[in-house]
Write a protein that binds this DNA or RNA. Sequence first.
DNA 1: TCGGATTACGTGCACCGTAATGATC
DNA 2: GATCATTACGGTGCACGTAATCCGA
Lengths: 287, 287
Amino acid sequence: MIEIYLLEQLAAVAEHGTLLKAAEVLYLSQPALSRSMKKLEAELGVSLFDRDNSKITLNKTGQYAVEYARRILELDREMCEGVADFDRRQRTVSVGACAPFPLGELTPVIQERFVEMAVTTELSDDEKLLSGLRNRSYQLVILHEKPEGRDLFCQHYLEEKLFIVLPKDHPLAKRKSVTFDDLREYKVLLVSSIGFWMEICRKRLDPEKLIVQNNMDALLELIEASTLPHFTSDRIMERGFSNPDRVTIPIEEDDAKTTYYIACLNSEKKKYGAVFSAAREAVLRGM
Amino acid sequence: MIEIYLLEQLAAVAEHGTLLKAAEVLYLSQPALSRSMKKLEAELGVSLFDRDNSKITLNKTGQYAVEYARRILELDREMCEGVADFDRRQRTVSVGACAPFPLGELTPVIQERFVEMAVTTELSDDEKLLSGLRNRSYQLVILHEKPEGRDLFCQHYLEEKLFIVLPKDHPLAKRKSVTFDDLREYKVLLVSSIGFWMEICRKRLDPEKLIVQNNMDALLELIEASTLPHFTSDRIMERGFSNPDRVTIPIEEDDAKTTYYIACLNSEKKKYGAVFSAAREAVLRGM
DNA sequence: TCGGATTACGTGCACCGTAATGATC
DNA sequence: GATCATTACGGTGCACGTAATCCGA
């Protein structure tokens, strides 16, 4: 069998034309390369070069061999990366979600069931989440629309409903409820990592009026320091986050409430079954 | 990069289950294999086995790696054979023909133009000759039917006409010409290597009456020693083969005469151009 | 006690580099 | 005299084997 290092050297010679240049690139001496090429020819039982006593050039057979060499080298490289990648995936659960709240809820549930494994999380939109699920970039995803497809296992997770937080002297502060249209004329504080909610805000509010922070801490500072409106949700409030100096008003719109679904590949339903049931129980307990 | 010998060892371990068995098969000691597998894991940066202190079994990643290993090994093997095969083809012209006479004529013509190369010849039927031409098993073929296909270059070669050779006292000896039907009731001597003529004989004569020799010498002996009819052709007689003790009568049938064509792949027309023109000239000279 | 993996240690070969030689421009 | 391949020779790393150890049925 031909060893890889010989194929690497052959490929380098093919690429650089002379033994000298190839040897430089390979951090090797010409004699070593010269011998290697001879060895290669001996092992294959054919001559790969036309030797002109001061110049070697690949002959037809040599060119043919180089094609094989490149294919084998490519496969070898692919193996190195592929195996490492596969291994990493074996030890990590990648969770993708369309919104931060359900992700924050689900992550500890997963971690609890897969103590050995790393849990990585990511926000994205439903479409990318689904394709990522199918190409194994994600093992679990949280969506805000029930997905199609017999290859998927999907379970209802929880609901979330948006509220607006206003200073007490805000023109809308006395309202029982508001709509997105009511809010259109006001500036609103937002953090960028809110998943699909950002789309909703961009669509239903005036994009010019959105003051978006990349950093959660920055947002909290601004909430403290300013009197600008910002969003919250029933779920967040349940977790005890509220501000007695402000009023919190529900947004009465379909766009302001959503249902989350957890999904995985049907083929991995068994593996993640514990997560699904734990998630269901957690929701029931929380009610 | 992972060397081939490590992949071979991995594949053997995967195949035989234990290091011990695999080591035997590989003519290697267990320690060597043990180290190799560790080295492989180190180079890939992953663990491939579950080690149970007295038993190693491939884990998921290991199984995944084995798949790659097998693919790479297969490609490496394919390279060894493929390159040797390619080289052999570079140095040989394989000629296939449907009949021995034109093959015997053309072979020296080819050899003259490709002095460096080996010329191998083979008899077969038109169909196999054409498929062999297309899959590069033959570089040149001699057919008795003009082939279809834009990928082929084809040139008329020569005609051949069949005669029957009879003892002077044979019932048909006085005839100016005969048909296959006239010959049906008589035993006929044949040699097996006559290409497509054999099909004609089997179809037009009584197969039971054909006395087929595998060996040309055996045929010649029998021709001398017996008074059985046998075939010859205008072309063979031109070459001076005739027997004054016998009469030679033409067979007046379409099936008893044929036209030969030489063909090669269009893509190799340039390479074999000299053969085609030399063949044409030889035929003209011979008339 | 046997099957099977690992550790420890010494050895040889195969691949490498340096230096010299050859060949062509 | 450049450039580039090959031959010659001496060095070294690394893959190997042997022997010893460990562990579980």
